[in-house]
Write a protein that binds this DNA or RNA. Sequence first.
RNA 1: GCCGCUGUGGCGGAAUUGGUAGACGCGGCGGAUUUAAAAUCCGCUGUUCGCAAGAACGUGCCGGUUCGAUUCCGGCCAGCGGCACCA
Length: 858
Amino acid sequence: MSDERRKPFPFDVFESKWQDHWDQNHTYRTPNPGDADFDASKPKYFVLDMFPYPSGAGLHVGHPEGYTATDILARYKRMKGFNVLHPMGWDAFGLPAEQYAIKTGQHPRVTTETNINNFRRQLKSLGFSYDWEREVNTTDPGYVRWTQWIFLRLYHSYYNPETQKSAPISELEAKGYTREQIDAERLAFVSEAPVNWSPDLGTVLANEEVEEWKAKGHTVERRPLRQWMLRITKYAQRLIDELEDVDWPDSIKASQRNWIGRSEGASVSFKIAGVTQEIEVFTTRPDTLFGATYMVLAPEHPYVEEITTEANKEAVEAYQQGCLSKSDLERGDLNKNKSGVPTGAFAINPANGKEIPIWIADYVMMGYGTGAIMAVPAHDERDFEFAQKFELPIIQVVASPDSVGGHSAGCDCELEKAAPGHGVAVESGFLNGLPTHAAKAEMIQWLEKEGVGSQQINYKLRDWLFSRQRYWGEPFPVLWEEGKHFAVSEDELPVLQPDLEDFKPTGSPEGPLAKATDWIQYSETAKRETNTMPQWAGSCWYYLRYCDPKNEEHFIAPEIEKYWSGEKGMVDLYVGGTEHAVLHLLYARFWHKVLYDQGLLSTPEPFDKLVNQGLILGEDGQKMSKSIGNVVNPDDVVNLYGADSLRLYEMFMGPLEQVKPWQMKGVEGVSRFLAKVWRVVMVQNQEGEWASSGKVSAEAELSNAMRKTLHETIKKVGEDIEAMKFNTAISQMMICVDSFTKAEKVPLDTFLDFLRILNPFAPHLTEELNLLVSPEAGLLCQQDWPEYQPEFLIETEVEVVLQVNGKLRGRITVSKEASKEEVEALALADENVIAFTDGKTIRKVIVVPGRLVNIVAN
RNA sequence: GCCGCUGUGGCGGAAUUGGUAGACGCGGCGGAUUUAAAAUCCGCUGUUCGCAAGAACGUGCCGGUUCGAUUCCGGCCAGCGGCACCA
């Protein structure tokens, strides 16, 4: 006791005591429909945290930020009579978990379990009210089984463009589709396209993941490989449209729209001189077709070889070779320095019949549109730059609105830069004189009439690369026989990875599972798929499993799914970081919609309301990092100040969504506040022992002032929790406690009301104090949220501010009931007002009842 | 470049439908208590001028609307985040 810093209140004694109590009594168990204690009359509330992935480093202070916010909501809603689903689990597959295992030389299952135990201990030490009986772990065989089951739903489904929904593939079988035709329609399919292969990670990556891993110093290159893909592109439009229906931050919605990247335009077919094929291009500016003076193909475009003339062959092949060796980064860096070579072939501009040269250049990407463009240098910055460099013709076909009068058709003044803006069509035959918008429509109509093009919508979104060459992931429930894939039957799930001694990546596209020769050989003729699923597979649907985590018949029982679903989304509130803006949050929406289409879910969206907590920076205002040494460990904070202080501080720092720096002094501040609450009930004697202060008493009388403060506090804290403005809720509670500290006596009921509203924030301290002042009452967290009485908030007298010409000049106290005229008369009689209006004429008097009087005088 | 967000004391941040700018906390200063310190309690604390009463200025900058603008409108500037040769 001697060395140890004397604790301002004995949180070290009671916090773990209450945690054990809640654990042993299953205090936060949430009944499901069908359970004996289920109460169908209670409304449901599903409040979800982004489940962590249990790294070896343990929790950082960013985790408890969002987790405390949701815990406050969960506890508040329970006290308001809701049946609250507030679960926690582990996103335990994935590259980092496996890398950690490789680094420590242990099997991933062992390290993962160790890490999970540490995370669970840490979370429990913060007093979160999770229903731990619903804990979910993505690596559990019982969970993997259903992840694979959902994969099979995707495998056995296609997207029906007529209904705009996914449907069983058997519909196509019934229509007599061939095996190849069916395989080409599956939502989970095999593709040979170029993918992002990381040689040092030994796996491929999704487009969405590439940047993250590159930032960590890994190399990623394009390489054609046979991979499993999910046809998320079919859902592009719905993924955009249905964002309208959810209550998400604008920035996340914008990121998703941006990532999906819808653009409207037209496809145009160009004939090639002397060759039978046509080349199709996509353009958002069909109105500029008359200005297309050359064409560019991506170096990888399949027609390049065929159309290249003998004379250009060598240069073209050299250029293609050069592009292959360039990394994406180099290609991006060369941004400002365009390169390319002519193929020697010519295309025919369908608008005017002119022959235009066909070039190849790496500023055209194979992955977007058709991998070919019509270049309109006058009205596109990139084409302009390219045309200047290679001295290709530049023809202006859109006059800017402000120069239409000056020079119309036939102007040969040279453009100094591209004019990508809208204007009026010139030099464009039948489009002349039309403003851009109308010219686009007119051209599309013409293209369709002539049969050389059509209206088209393009998306940047690519299909989701879904396979990884890893050990620590869900194996695909797929078999290969004579070069064809077949689904494993549902009753064979889960397909678990074999135990391997050596689970390190092979560096080959087959992955570590290829080493398990016995496991691979499913039967004499059939072999197993050796790829595994990405980490996202498990996190795509974990929120669903929480509803019914132990069900062995269904991934979620229909009646339970219905109960926990809302109107638009299933989860009422989802809190987490912004890093998943286009990853997890897009993937989960996609899976949810597929399952919704098939009648397995009741809502089109998974998450109704989404809130992003802001990053917590180090004390120095920089991002926390081990190398800078500014990382704050929550365990240390709990040891020094207690879990309640950590919870309260993280909520008091500022608005949840905001980025904010950590301040240890601030933790001390809220710790002082909690100590003050403690000392309302307890006093410390000379020996440092705590004893009842006798201040809180059932006989004490409630003063009007204290009653008003209490009711103001009940009102404000309730409203602030609903609005997730926890920082201001805490300020108000500080004001309330100040009034207790200053008072002689505090009535017991008043104090208990206060404890109830503080309970969601500081559950340990409040339960302990409740036990001390009201030992018979039972758990505070199971009591009702107090109601405030509006009549106690009403003031009989109000202070009215006096302004002269908008400047504060005085204040008077008037009765609440005083009429405008009375207030005005009092204001004009005020000596300060008289002093400042002296010698001036009063032009106008504005009276805002209960607030101010403004006198306009000059 | 495009999209989104944010600019308020020494610091984190408050401020309802436009109506007292700076709640609450941190830090600082002064006092009480103490042999002394810690802890605790009380008071002060936007800037400038003034002995004071008080006055002027003040929410990134410039302008507008208004009796009145941190709040609404227009134009800039700075910072943060995302996307980026996407045709």
